[in-house]
Design a protein around this nucleic acid. Structure first.
Lengths: 186, 186
DNA sequence: ATGATTATTTATCATTTGTTAAAGGAAATC
DNA sequence: GATTTCCTTTAACAAATGATAAATAATCAT
C-alpha cells in the first residue's frame, strides 16, 4: 500500500492535526546524487519520497554500502538516530532527481503531546517500517544472493536505472557477484 | 538498558494506566523447549522475558532457523503478525526454563484509546525494537560470519548454554561453520 | 560528436561457507 | 551408572562469493 492510500485508510487525523502537520512540512527537490542528509549528522527529519529514488548509505572499509532504498511514497528515516537522538554514520542521497517531503522531527514529537491522532498516525507508519525491516532480516539471514536478487526484482518495480553497485551492496554482495548472478539468470 | 530501568526512565504511565495494564497481564512459566507460541498462529500476545531465554524460530527447507533471541528483560513479539493481524510462519519457544510476562495485544490496543500514556509507552518500546532490528541488518548485510559471532559474544552476556545450532542459524550460517569459526578463534 | 568518466561484464584465482559423514563429548532417561 | 540421545567437533570435498584485473558498454560534459 502506498503512503496516500494508507493515510486515507487510517483516516485518523483531525483537520487541526492536518493543519499543524502542514506547518512543519517542507517539500524539496534534489538533483541526481545530491546528498539529502550528511553522514555523521543526526536524523532530525522524517522524509517521504514524492517522486524519484533515494537511499540510505554508509561506508564500510572504504566501500559505499546501500542499506535502504526508498521509492515513490516510501517513508525514509535513519531510525537508529531518529529514535535515539544520537548521530549516525549513515547518510541519505538522492539516486536521481527526487522530490521529497520533509517533516521536522523535533516539531513532530512536540505535536504528539497536543495531537494524539498524529502520534498514532506515525506510530502506525513506523510499525509498518519495523515490519519491513524484520522481513529484510529473514531475507538476509538465510537466502542465497540469487534468491535475494530475484525477490528484490519481484517485489519492487523501481529497481531499474539504479546503479548495480547500489543494488549489490543492498543485497550484501559485490557488484561483480551480482553481475555474475544476472548472467546466470539469462 | 533493561526493561525496568527503561520503564522508570520514561515514567509516563499514570496509576490508572498501570492498573489497567496489570489487568491484561499474565505471568507464565515454560519448561525447557516448550512452545510458547505455535508456528502458524497470530501474534496476540506481547511478551517480556522475566527470567530465562526464549527464541523466535521458523523452518526453511526443513531446517530450524532462529530469527531472534530474547533474554532477561527483553521484549519478544512476532512483529510481522502483531502489526498486520496476519498469521506468521514463525513460532516462539523457551530455550530453557523461562518465566515470561504476557500482555494481550487486542486488549492493549484498546487501552491505547483510553490511555494515551500507554500508547506512548509501547510506541517507545517498539521504536527501540525497531532500532535493534536495523542494527541487525547492518550486521547481516556486510559482516563476515566470524565478525558477527564475535559481535554477538561481545554484546550479549546470555549466549552461554544456548545450543550451537540456534546461534549458528541466528548468525545465518550452519553449525558446522560456526564450530569451525570457534576453533579458529582459539 | 568526441573524449572522458563511470558502469557493467568477464575471467582467473583465493577464500569463505555449505554439505555430508563420521567420531568424540555431554547430557538426559531409565 | 549404563544406555541412549543429542550436541559439538573434525575432515574432505563442493559450491558460492570475494578480490583483482582487464575488456566492453553506457553515460556525461564540453
Amino acid at each position: 500500500m502506498d503512503l496516500f492510500s494508507f493515510l486515507n485508510s487510517v483516516n485518523i487525523t483531525s483537520p487541526q492535526a492536518k493543519e499543524a502537520l502542514e506547518q512543519i512540512t517542507q517539500v524539496k527537490s534534489y538533483s541526481k546524487n545530491e546528498i539529502i542528509q550528511e553522514i555523521g549528522s543526526r536524523c532530525k527529519t522524517i522524509y517521504f519520497v514524492q517522486e524519484g529514488r533515494a537511499r540510505i548509505f554508509y561506508y564500510k572499509n572504504g566501500n559505499d554500502i546501500t542499506e535502504h532504498f526508498a521509492f515513490r511514497n516510501d517513508l525514509i528515516v535513519r531510525a537508529e538516530s531518529l529514535f535515539t537522538g544520537k548521530p549516525t554514520s549513515k547518510g541519505i542521497q538522492a539516486i536521481e532527481q527526487t522530490n521529497i517531503v520533509g517533516i521536522n522531527s523535533d516539531s513532530l514529537f512536540k505535536l504528539y503531546d497536543k495531537h494524539h491522532d498524529i502520534e498514532r498516525l506515525f506510530r502506525l507508519l513506523f510499525e509498518r517500517e519495523y515490519v519491513n525491516t524484520v522481513k529484510r532480516i529473514e531475507s538476509l539471514q538465510f537466502k542465497s544472493a540469487k534468491e535475494r536478487y530475484v525477490e528484490l526484482l519481484e517485489t519492487t518495480n523501481y529497481v531499474q536505472k539504479i546503479p548495480l553497485k547500489h543494488i549489490a551492496s543492498y543485497l550484501g554482495i559485490t557488484q561483480v557477484s551480482l553481475s555474475r548472478i544476472r548472467a546466470d539468470l539469462q
